[in-house]
Design a protein around this nucleic acid. Structure first.
Lengths: 189, 189, 189, 189
DNA sequence: AATGAATGAGAATTCATTCAT
DNA sequence: CATGAATGAATTCTCATTCAT
């Protein structure tokens, strides 16, 4: 693994442990097992690592969803798989995603985040469009807007499970069922 | 206004202006017009002010919603007013809310946030229940869980408008319409 | 107990717990259960409490010694009782005495300490003189100087037992026997 | 000289000048000609420098004593030289030694001090043993315990001279003679 | 006399950043 | 490229002291 990647990985881990505010460059380099000065060879500041992290998270989302959602499957099957994927990745990156999200809002204009999220939005939008054409989703929706809402809904459901101290396995199953039913009702013609 | 409240107010203002990372305690005390040491009489650190801010935001949500949503109104009217209220408060606290949320995940266990949000969740849950009894919301939902999803959905829609650089007034209207329609479809029997 | 006395008592306790350097006025007033401002009604500073403490310690020494050492007893008996008394008081005030001693050296000229210790020195000196007249102590000593040496010797022996982590009861007995024998040899004609 | 050593040296000097209580880290770094932050690279606080200072003092004691006390010399000669050495070093480190001693009792457990003093105790113990074998010291003493007493006696005599305001040269000579005589009487068979 | 919240000067501490090796 | 000791400006934090009640 090259040093740049090491830094990104280490940053994710340290951000998880201590939060962004409390993370020092020295924490990152220590975890990455590189020298203090080396950090600056790749990133100008702590916060500039974030886009790299964000990209990783989103790529993970897309990868998981693409791998599990078959274009041929029934709508309910597709939605179910998508919810599963989002729950999985949210779990995987727990607190970091919130932190990165907040980190963005602290530093740059949020459009950076927007840009990174774009491929995911687009993928969901095209999923909706496809199902509109199949007649399984009502024609009155705006696919682009709705894609964001769908993701917002499912992610907030996932955060309920993983970010708060509510977690237990049974809970997770029920926590998935509810938004799924909502989505089906919300989207059907 | 007592000093503690002054600190919270000043913190909100300064956090809005400069973001959390860049805010110094000295900025807060200056805005609050108190001595440096006085801050530490009430809060041990910058981040520990956040729960107090969070509480304010949530109280604002509840206040706005209660003031605008009439128990007698039609469901669509109620939902519409609720969405309006959430958009308004999200606008009012723009960046701060995300920061506070992220700040929480850093300092305490997230269940603190959960606890602060509880009254809002409960209010929406009881709105749903009432409408279930009126036969306007399908009986298969779990009011408590669904309340969270409803709020998650609307908040993420509101964030789309205010946190990113997309804002324009027309946009806002459409951005409200979409989740509203989704909600109506999702909840109707 | 009046407030002044309360302050002295509380100071002793807090100094024992935290040492002088780390003790805050606020620690003292808290322990003394008085208000912050009240402290300044009786003492101008933290260090100005010390002479009062020192006096207490020395008075305790004198009191113990006088109570236990009979002028009629044999020399070895007298010495033995004196050693017992010094060990007891050293135990009672453990670290404080060192701290007070050091505190003196920090602030004022050490002659303050000297002055407070004077009655104790004098008492031991007169004990020696008496025994010189009885022919039990060699005539070549200077009673004043030797009194100091005797006390220095016994106190350092006592500190060995109580200040370091060596303490056990058997140890204490042996630790007393050794300086006692030394004293007897050193003083006998 | 490396930075750590520089800090210890500077601390000794500044403590001598101003006392511990009044010494600021900034005084130390200024005297040491290093940056403020560099101090914290080596020591976490002002008080944590003390063990290092203590070590220096004890090493100085050992060095002086070894250099002056010849194993072949007569006992009284040896004792006399030892007393001279102890008086010299006590003079050299005047106030500091008491402060360090007190500082120790504040920061760590006193056994740290014990450990640092160990080599000195051992040296004196072996001196006593040697003289026991030569038949010049009575066989009934415990060399280890007695070594501590001997040092306690001489040090307290030295402190009498240097720490209090009694000093004058004639005084010093007499102040040495007294414990010396005591020692000779105390130790002889 | 007693209180204790408020003060703010001053000291401790941090940590991003540099740069000689 | 890589290092990591050193830096010192910037900030946090402490705590003796005051003073209106």
């Amino acid at each position: 693994m090259d040093k740049k990647e090491k830094i990104v990985q280490a940053s994710i881990e340290v951000f998880k442990e201590k939060g962004i505010e409390k993370t020092k460059i020295s924490d990152i380099v220590q975890k990455a097992e590189i020298a203090q000065g080396t950090f600056y060879l790749y990133f100008p500041s702590k916060l500039s690592v974030m886009p790299a992290i964000a990209e990783q998270i989103v790529q993970r989302f897309i990868q998981k969803i693409k791998a599990n959602v078959s274009p041929e499957a029934r709508l309910s099957e597709q939605l179910s798989r998508m919810v599963d994927a989002i729950f999985q990745v949210t779990d995987e990156f727990r607190d970091v995603s919130v932190l990165v999200y907040a980190g963005f809002s602290t530093t740059e204009n949020m459009s950076g985040w927007e840009k990174i999220y774009a491929p995911l939005y687009e993928w969901v939008a095209s999923l909706l469009e496809m199902n509109m054409q199949r007649g399984l989703v009502r024609g009155s929706i705006d696919p682009a807007r709705t894609a964001r809402l769908v993701l917002g809904l499912v992610e907030s459901a996932a955060e309920q499970v993983f970010l708060y101290d509510l977690y237990d396995a049974r809970n997770e199953a029920e926590q998935k069922a509810e938004p799924l039913t909502m989505l089906e009702h919300a989207l059907r013609p």
